[in-house]
Simulated scan of single mutants.
Amino acid sequence: MAKVLDRLQQELIDSLQGEKIVSLITTDKDTNKPNLSIVSWLVAHQDGKTIKFALGHNAESAFNIMENSNLILGVYGADSCYSINGKGTVSDVITKSMKYRVVTVAIDSVEDVMFYGGKLTKEPEYVKTYDEELAKKLDSEVYELLK
């Protein structure tokens, strides 16, 4: 059985400094079933106990977290896959070039969930398919909010 920690280790903190594909699992506020979404605007703080990520102001996940703060982040990084359990709090709407909400996660536990004998050799990659200048502007605004 994998060791469960109460905080992120430094290698994972370093890995979670933005532009990552991270799975977000919340509890659907209407059906009470698991709800999966993907986030990429994400920053782990140096205390190892806090992660912040940004969502659009009307994101279903934000409303789910407001109803039930328990969540899981599925993370690829530091040569493995991790399940980060925590409780999220959702900010009021923040208006910049677009409207955002910032979710602050207080980490309860971190578990390496990679199967026995496995090691992650390459992390998932993605490209932004909208205007490059707008992407830079939005990224700059969001990371200012998260740090």
Results as ranks from 00 to 15, higher is better:
3 K>A: 04
6 D>F: 04
6 D>T: 15
7 R>C: 09
9 Q>S: 12
9 Q>L: 14
9 Q>E: 13
9 Q>W: 07
10 Q>K: 09
11 E>Q: 15
11 E>M: 10
12 L>C: 02
12 L>H: 03
14 D>T: 08
15 S>A: 14
16 L>V: 03
19 E>R: 11
21 I>W: 01
23 S>Q: 09
26 T>C: 06
26 T>F: 03
28 D>G: 12
29 K>E: 10
30 D>K: 13
30 D>C: 00
31 T>V: 04
33 K>P: 10
34 P>W: 05
35 N>S: 15
35 N>K: 15
35 N>Q: 14
37 S>E: 03
37 S>T: 05
39 V>L: 15
41 W>T: 07
42 L>N: 10
42 L>G: 01
44 A>I: 12
44 A>L: 10
44 A>T: 09
47 D>C: 02
48 G>C: 02
50 T>P: 11
50 T>N: 09
50 T>L: 11
51 I>F: 04
52 K>C: 07
52 K>M: 06
58 N>E: 14
59 A>L: 02
59 A>F: 05
60 E>W: 09
61 S>G: 04
62 A>P: 01
65 I>E: 04
69 S>E: 12
70 N>Q: 08
71 L>I: 05
72 I>G: 00
74 G>Y: 01
75 V>G: 00
75 V>Y: 04
76 Y>K: 04
76 Y>W: 05
78 A>S: 14
78 A>W: 02
78 A>F: 08
80 S>E: 10
80 S>I: 02
83 S>I: 01
83 S>T: 00
85 N>L: 03
85 N>T: 01
86 G>L: 05
86 G>Q: 10
88 G>Y: 07
89 T>N: 12
90 V>W: 09
93 V>N: 07
93 V>F: 00
94 I>S: 11
96 K>M: 07
97 S>K: 11
97 S>L: 13
98 M>D: 13
98 M>V: 14
98 M>P: 08
99 K>Q: 14
99 K>H: 10
101 R>D: 11
102 V>M: 04
102 V>Y: 07
105 V>I: 14
107 I>C: 11
107 I>D: 08
109 S>T: 13
109 S>N: 11
109 S>Y: 03
111 E>W: 01
111 E>D: 01
111 E>M: 08
115 F>L: 12
116 Y>P: 09
118 G>S: 15
118 G>L: 12
121 T>W: 07
122 K>D: 11
123 E>N: 02
124 P>L: 04
124 P>R: 01
125 E>S: 15
125 E>M: 12
126 Y>H: 10
126 Y>I: 09
127 V>D: 13
127 V>E: 15
127 V>Y: 14
128 K>W: 14
128 K>V: 15
129 T>V: 15
130 Y>R: 05
130 Y>C: 00
130 Y>H: 04
131 D>C: 09
131 D>R: 10
133 E>Y: 07
136 K>V: 08
137 K>P: 02
137 K>S: 03
138 L>W: 09
138 L>C: 02
139 D>R: 12
139 D>V: 07
139 D>A: 13
144 E>G: 08
146 L>R: 06
146 L>P: 10
147 K>M: 06
